[in-house]
Amino acid sequence: MEGAALPAAPDVQAAFAAWVRHLGSERRASAHTVDSYGRDLRQFLNFLAEHLGTPPDLAALAALGPRDFRAFQARRRGEGIAAATSARGLSGLRSFFRFLDRRGLGHNAAALATKAPKLPHGVPRPLSRDAALAAVEDAGALAAEPWIAARDEAVLALLYGCGLRISEALSLRRGAAPLGQTLRITGKGNKERLVPVLPAVADAVEAYLRQCPYRLAKDDPLFVGAKGGPLSPRIVQRSMEALRGALNLPADATPHALRHSFATHLLGAGGDLRTIQELLGHASLSTTQRYTEVDTARLLAAYADAHPRARGGD
């Protein structure tokens, strides 16, 4: 949590540091979450320093009212901040104010009562089976070296074959391979789950390791970049972007779309929601239920194309 000095009085700076430690140690939040929440709170304190005319102290934070929080949200909207990002920022602020309350450092009911912006109801956009398979099988088509081609194929095979998030695939250690029949994954909120591993996925990982020019220790990242360091998600995303043009894949053919495709294709083949929820690592079944909307849309489209009554027949 490095950077410019926090725009706040010393008591708020101390509370901020304690809160960050709390998130990482007691709440076991991921490094990404800690960074995001910290950045959001820093932006809020920057706003307050300007809004109040002075860096806020704990007493000033406790005295904030609904108008102050609405003014911050209005500023964010004016800057073109997306609703999802704004909602995440508010979640971080609530976490900080709850922390202050529990530690006896200040209570602010307005912070906890402020409503998050409404988020658009997003339905996952999966690829067709043919497009998903083409993306995985030809993932290395444009790679500069054979081992990089094998690496890209192995990463995308994990996303589509096991339903992993890209962060989960890239967090795997060398010691995880050779892959067995199941793979233990640590997902969001440090929740563990077991996912089955298809033979084709295990073979793709083995093919990559046979060609990888770097000697990887057990605790090293399983997937590495061209210079041997941890593979960046952006590299995988760029590879997929290039692949879209080469294979004429749809614009929504992203690495994350392969995870959506995994879920949708399982559901279409008769998989039940509870099982898919476990495989994806969703905390709430309602998150997984979005895939029923995708499958219903697919069924309705098929009905419209094929059913005689849909075409006005008898």
Rank of each mutant, 00 (worst) to 15 (best):
P213W: 10
F96D: 00
G281D: 08
H107F: 07
L48D: 03
G80W: 08
S167M: 00
S25Y: 07
A253P: 03
A113R: 14
I166L: 15
V34F: 04
L48E: 06
A59V: 13
A169N: 08
A202Q: 06
I235Y: 09
F16C: 08
Q211D: 00
P255H: 05
A71N: 07
E192G: 03
C162K: 01
S284G: 03
D252G: 10
W19Y: 09
A84W: 03
N108I: 15
G268Y: 08
F97Q: 06
R184N: 10
G92N: 04
E79K: 08
S286G: 06
L247E: 00
A63C: 09
L231K: 02
L258D: 04
L142Y: 04
L100M: 14
Q13T: 14
E192W: 12
Y160L: 10
R173Q: 14
V136K: 01
V34P: 01
A297Y: 10
D219C: 05
S91C: 15
A139G: 09
R234F: 03
A17E: 13
A4T: 12
R21K: 13
R184A: 13
D152F: 02
M1R: 13
R151A: 07
W147S: 00
A9Y: 05
L266A: 08
D68S: 14
Y214F: 15
L105D: 11
L179V: 05
